[in-house]
C-alpha cells in the first residue's frame, strides 16, 4: 500500500498512476479479507465485500484506460501534468 501511495505521488506517467491505484486497491482488499479471517468468529462478509471491491476496481481500470487512450489521442503524450487542456 505504501508502495502504491509513493507511486501515486512520485510518478507523472498516467499508466503508472493507474498501476499505483490498482496496487492500493489490492492492499485494501487484502486487509478486508485478513481482518474478516482473523475476527473472533471468522466472518464471510469480508470475502463478499471484496468481491464487490474487485468488480469496481475492474470498472475503474476500464474507464481509466479509456481516458488514457483519449488523452494520448488529444495530446500525443501521457504526462499528467501536461494535461492542462482539460481545465474548464
Amino acid at each position: 500500500m505504501c508502495v502504491g501511495i509513493y507511486g501515486l505521488i512520485a510518478k507523472r506517467n498516467a499508466i503508472r498512476l493507474l498501476f499505483s491505484v490498482e496496487i492500493i486497491i489490492n492492499a485494501a482488499i487484502i486487509n478486508f479479507v485478513a481482518f474478516a479471517r482473523y475476527h473472533d468468529t471468522p466472518l464471510i462478509t469480508g470475502q463478499t465485500f471484496s468481491l464487490f471491491a474487485i468488480a469496481l476496481a475492474a470498472t475503474e481500470a476500464a474507464v481509466g484506460l479509456a481516458i488514457i487512450v483519449q488523452a494520448f489521442r488529444l495530446n500525443n503524450d501521457i504526462d499528467v501534468l501536461e494535461l492542462k487542456k482539460l481545465r474548464g
Binding site: L18, I29, V33, R37, Q47, S50, I54, A55, A58, L65
Partner: peptide, 21 residues
C-alpha cells in the same frame, strides 16, 4: 483460506486488467 477470492483475483486482475493495460 479464501479460495474464492483468489480465483476471482486471478480471473479479473490477471485475466482482464493486466491484459487491458
Amino acid at each position: 483460506d479464501s479460495l474464492y477470492i483468489a480465483i476471482f483475483q486471478v480471473l479479473v486482475y490477471i485475466g482482464s486488467i493486466a491484459i487491458l493495460i
